[in-house]
Structure formats: C-alpha cells, structure tokens
Design a protein around this nucleic acid. Structure first.
Lengths: 139, 139
DNA sequence: CGAATAAATGCAACCCGGTTGCACCGTTTT
DNA sequence: AAAACGGTGCAACCGGGTTGCATTTATTCG
C-alpha cells in the first residue's frame, strides 16, 4: 500500500499504520462531515465494527482524531487539524435537527470560560443545534 | 397531596400535574446534580422507567426541564431556572471524568458565537470535561 | 530461518440507555 | 352511567457501544 497522508499522521503520533488503520484514516479524510462508527461501518464493509471501534479509540487516545458529541446520541469523529489538537484548537460544531448532519465551523473557536476554583479542564464540547441552510430552504 | 413549587411550575406551562409528574419534579428539585433517567428510576422505585421517560420528555417539550449532554453517554435533566429557558438562560456544565458527576455552573453563561449565514440556532450545549476539586484532592 | 511472543483482527455475544406497542385503569366529559 | 380520553405499567425491542475469546498476522529472538 502506498504511503500517504494517513501514515504520516499516525507515525507522527507513534501509532503503527496497519492496513485497517489506514483504511479508517482514509475514510475519515474523505468524509465531509464528522463520521459516526456506524457510518464508517458502511463505508468499510471489509472491516468489522469492533475493529473500527478499536481503531477509533486508539486514534482518540493518540490525538489523531477527536470525538464530538453533537447531541444526536451517537458519537462523531473527525481528524484533528493540528498536531496538538489541544483545547485551543477545538472548534464549534453544528447539528442540524432536520437532516441530522454535523457541521464543523473550523473558523469559529470555542469561546473560553473561567472555571471555578479547583476545576481542571481536559476538553470542551460546544455544539449548536438548529437548522442548516439547506434544510431551511426546503421548507 | 399538598400543592408545592412543582405544581406551580407545571400549571404555568400548561401541564396537568398528575401524581407521577409531581414525584418526578420533586425528585429533580431535590437533586444537587442534573439527573439521568436511570438515577430517577432508582429514586422513584414506584414508577416505571417508561413513565419517567415520558414525563421527562413532556417536561422538555414544555420547557419545564432541559436536557444536557454531558458527554457521559447518558442524558441528564435539570429543572429550568427561568420561565423562558431560552438560549440566553442556558449555562455551562462540567463533567468530571473521575466521579462521573455533572456540575452546573449557573453563574457562567454560555458564550455566544456568530453562526455562518443561513444557520439558525435552537439550542446550545457547552460542556467542559475534566476533574472536579473533590476528585483532584483524592489523588 | 523458525520457533516463541506479541499485536491486531473478526466473530459472536452482551450491556444498557432509550423507546415503543399495547392493554389496563383512572379521570373527565356528556 | 356510558363513552372517550389521557396516563401508566409491563414487556419487549432497538441500536450504539463494548468485551471475551479464538484466530490470524506481525515481530522478536535464539
């Protein structure tokens, strides 16, 4: 298999690029919206759900992808833009309640807040729910 | 049964205060943290899970309570403070990854963002994940 | 190189939160 | 009092997520 962006991503984070992992990474890179486990399952019919699940978890641990809770009830995943994928890199998401798609507002940073004394932050999730332009037009 | 805060809440929103609904409302008022369906189930052992579920959904529809996705995978519910419970009233939440409790930062408003053209907002969810003071001290 | 070891994968089964269909029961209406 | 309606409990279901285990694939080491 040819070495592509995927492998660079993984090797940079110390993850061995197995063929399955490359498949998952490619599928995610080709997706426009953040994808769910189930979506990946249908995209990668050669792979078992549990394998995809484990690859995703591995990726999350190694900050190759991050998980988004968009309020649909199912987790969505997307490739981290930056090497760090720290809180400052996290962006806002939008969940359309009509078409059930999740949008990334990559240009909109999550506004920071001051936590009360003693609380320490690991991650932030900022999701706006509403209607996307396409669905609004369909009315 | 004595008329209390619960009934006023419900009647103000046009919801008939049945005994079960009063039970759910009381349980939620007595809780410190936002509660899940399962937690309510153990608090109200006389009620069936599906009944609690339906009461919660009814309350959400009538803006008596709102649902929070704290990233634990299970929905949490809490009584709305204000009559309106509009976006401006929504506050920030904190999910402790150690003790799995959800905290309300009622004083911290969710910072607003400008959505791209065409997107309309119905609700916002802002959740910070990390470690709470109690769990940090236990180390 | 080939055996021993470790890692990755597929399969099947499971868990659990959420949800629904349906029958029953209590309340309201006429 | 009968009919209509809403609320409730029960049981069953659904689907996302997760795990145990056996098998395959890759890696290490003699």
């Amino acid at each position: 298999m040819e070495t592509g962006t995927e492998n660079i991503l993984m090797e940079a984070k110390g993850v061995k690029p197995t063929s399955n992992r490359i498949l998952v990474a490619r599928a995610m890179l080709s997706a426009i919206h953040p994808v769910s486990l189930t979506e990946l399952e249908t995209m990668l019919m050669t792979m078992d759900k549990s394998s995809i699940f484990r690859v995703l978890n591995l990726f999350v641990e190694h900050h190759i992808v991050h998980a988004i809770e968009d309020g649909s009830g199912t987790l969505k995943y997307e490739i981290c833009d930056s090497q760090e994928c720290s809180i400052a890199d996290m962006h806002t998401h939008f969940y359309c309640e009509k078409c059930h798609k999740t949008f990334c507002f990559k240009t909109i940073q999550i506004p920071e807040i001051d936590l009360p004394e003693g609380f320490s932050m690991n991650s932030v999730n900022y999701v706006v729910k509403g209607i996307c332009p396409k669905c609004a037009a369909k009315e």
